[in-house]
Simulated scan of single mutants.
Amino acid sequence: MNAENLRAATPNIRDVDILDGVKVVEVTTAVSAPLIGRVLAELGAEVVKVESRAKVDVNRARVPRPTDPDGFPSHEAFQLLHEASASKQSVTLNMKTDRGKELFLELLADADVFIENFVPGWLDRLGLPIDYLRARFPRLVILSASGYGQTGPMRTQRSYAPVMTALAGIEGLIGYADGQVMGCSALALADLNCTFNGVFLVMAALAGREATGAGTHLDLSQIEAAATLAGEAFVEEQLQGARPGPRGNQDPDGTRWSVRRTVEDDTWVAARVVEPEPDSTPRPTREELLKRLRAKGIESACVASPQQVIADPRFRGRGYTQDIEHPHPAVGELTITSVPWRVEGAVPRVRRAAPMIGAGNTEILGRYADAAELAELEDQGVLK
Rank of each mutant, 00 (worst) to 15 (best):
T255N: 03
G317A: 15
R283M: 04
P284Q: 10
G345P: 02
T335I: 08
G317K: 10
Q307L: 06
A233Y: 05
E264Q: 07
R342L: 02
A226C: 09
P278G: 02
T335G: 04
W341S: 07
V273F: 06
V339P: 03
R256M: 03
P276T: 04
V273L: 15
A330H: 14
V235S: 06
A233T: 09
L293P: 01
P329F: 06
F234T: 12
G332T: 03
P252G: 07
V263Q: 09
G245P: 00
T281C: 10
P327G: 12
S305H: 15
E325R: 10
T228L: 14
A233D: 01
A225F: 14
P244I: 04
V274M: 06
Y320G: 10
R243F: 04
A233I: 00
L239F: 14
P329K: 08
E237T: 04
P306K: 02
G345V: 02
G317P: 04
T228C: 12
P278T: 03
G231K: 12
P348S: 02
R314S: 10
A271N: 01
G319N: 05
H328A: 05
A227R: 10
T262Y: 06
G297L: 11
P348Q: 02
A295I: 05
G332A: 11
L289P: 02
P244W: 05
A295N: 09
P329L: 06
S280V: 06
F234I: 06
R349D: 00
D251Q: 15
V235E: 07
Q322M: 08
S338P: 03
G245C: 06
T255Y: 02
A354Y: 00
T285I: 14
S300G: 08
T321R: 10
R243H: 11
R261E: 14
G319H: 04
D266Q: 13
V347N: 01
V350D: 00
T337L: 12
V273A: 11
F234E: 07
E344V: 07
E236S: 11
E333G: 10
D265E: 07
L289V: 15
K291I: 12
P246K: 06
H328E: 03
P278W: 00
H326D: 14
T335S: 13
S280D: 03
G248E: 11
R316G: 09
P276I: 09
A311K: 04
P246C: 03
A346G: 12
R318A: 09
E333I: 14
P306H: 09
A242S: 13
V350I: 07
R342V: 12
V274F: 03
R247C: 08
V331K: 05
Q322A: 06
I298C: 14
E277G: 10
H326W: 04
V235W: 12
Q250L: 11
P282G: 01
V259L: 08
V259W: 07
Q308T: 12
R272E: 07
A271T: 03
A346N: 13
E275Q: 13
P278N: 03
P340I: 08
R351W: 05
S300Y: 07
R260W: 04
E232Q: 15
A295Q: 07
T285F: 04
K291M: 15
